[in-house]
Simulated assay, not measured.
Amino acid sequence: MRIRDILRRKGDTVTTVRPEATVRQLLAVLAEHNIGAVVVSPDGAAIAGIVSERDVVRRLHDAGAGLLDRPVTDIMTTEVHTCGPGAEVEELRGTMTEHRFRHVPIVENGRLTGIVSIGDVVKSAIDELQSEREHLVGYIQGAP
């Protein structure tokens, strides 16, 4: 299975925030969309960074409530791992596990075209296993 298959099912909508957005604005976006991370982008296509709930919590502990009025650029990850829609889901699963990140922006022709979470990757693995199980059960039950 490829990443494009996941995007076909879940959609290719990517929630972004501009680099000058405050952490407070970021939290509002996360809550409004019920998501765990957003891509930081000046134009919705280029990737400046990625920022997650986890980033906020860790920095909030160190900086206190004053963090809420600072720009997301102060807490975002700038070294963003991305992949293309043609990448194999199994390969991405390994990369996400090895590097311990939960969200990967999908880039095609230099433009942001989607985002995949570890939950999306796990769901695709479960769906594949369920499909294989159904085929095996059908084969066994249909055997003479």
Results as ranks from 00 to 15, higher is better:
residue 55 D to M: 09
residue 9 R to T: 14
residue 134 E to R: 15
residue 51 V to F: 03
residue 28 A to C: 02
residue 67 L to G: 03
residue 83 C to K: 04
residue 117 S to R: 02
residue 20 E to F: 08
residue 132 E to D: 10
residue 15 T to S: 07
residue 142 G to K: 06
residue 4 R to Y: 15
residue 45 A to V: 00
residue 128 E to A: 15
residue 90 E to T: 10
residue 120 D to E: 13
residue 143 A to G: 06
residue 43 D to Y: 08
residue 52 S to A: 13
residue 14 V to G: 01
residue 62 D to V: 15
residue 65 A to H: 07
residue 8 R to M: 11
residue 97 T to D: 11
residue 60 L to W: 06
residue 37 A to L: 01
residue 128 E to V: 14
residue 14 V to M: 03
residue 5 D to E: 15
residue 51 V to N: 03
residue 97 T to S: 12
residue 130 Q to G: 15
residue 80 V to M: 09
residue 17 V to M: 05
residue 57 V to P: 00
residue 96 M to H: 06
residue 144 P to W: 11
residue 53 E to P: 06
residue 84 G to Y: 06
residue 45 A to R: 10
residue 138 G to Y: 09
residue 93 R to V: 12
residue 122 V to R: 08
residue 79 E to R: 14
residue 26 L to Y: 01
residue 109 N to V: 00
residue 34 N to C: 10
residue 43 D to Q: 09
residue 133 R to P: 08
residue 116 V to W: 02
residue 88 E to M: 11
residue 16 T to P: 00
residue 129 L to R: 15
residue 20 E to D: 15
residue 106 I to G: 07
residue 63 A to Y: 11
residue 134 E to N: 14
residue 82 T to L: 02
residue 133 R to Y: 13
residue 127 D to T: 14
residue 16 T to V: 13
residue 116 V to Q: 02
residue 56 V to W: 02
residue 95 T to F: 05
residue 17 V to A: 04
residue 20 E to S: 13
residue 40 V to D: 00
residue 102 R to I: 00
residue 128 E to Y: 10
residue 102 R to E: 02
residue 102 R to W: 01
residue 76 M to V: 10
residue 25 Q to T: 12
residue 40 V to C: 03
residue 36 G to F: 00
residue 104 V to P: 02
residue 124 S to D: 15
residue 91 E to R: 03
residue 139 Y to P: 02
residue 118 I to E: 10
residue 130 Q to A: 15
residue 26 L to N: 05
residue 34 N to I: 07
residue 77 T to G: 10
residue 88 E to T: 07
residue 71 P to N: 00
residue 87 A to V: 12
residue 8 R to T: 13
residue 98 E to Q: 04
residue 141 Q to T: 13
residue 8 R to P: 01
residue 59 R to E: 12
residue 122 V to C: 04
residue 97 T to Y: 09
residue 108 E to A: 04
residue 84 G to F: 04
residue 46 A to D: 06
residue 111 R to Y: 05
residue 66 G to V: 09
residue 8 R to Y: 14
residue 52 S to V: 07
residue 89 V to G: 02
residue 63 A to M: 14
residue 7 L to F: 07
residue 2 R to Q: 15
residue 44 G to M: 03
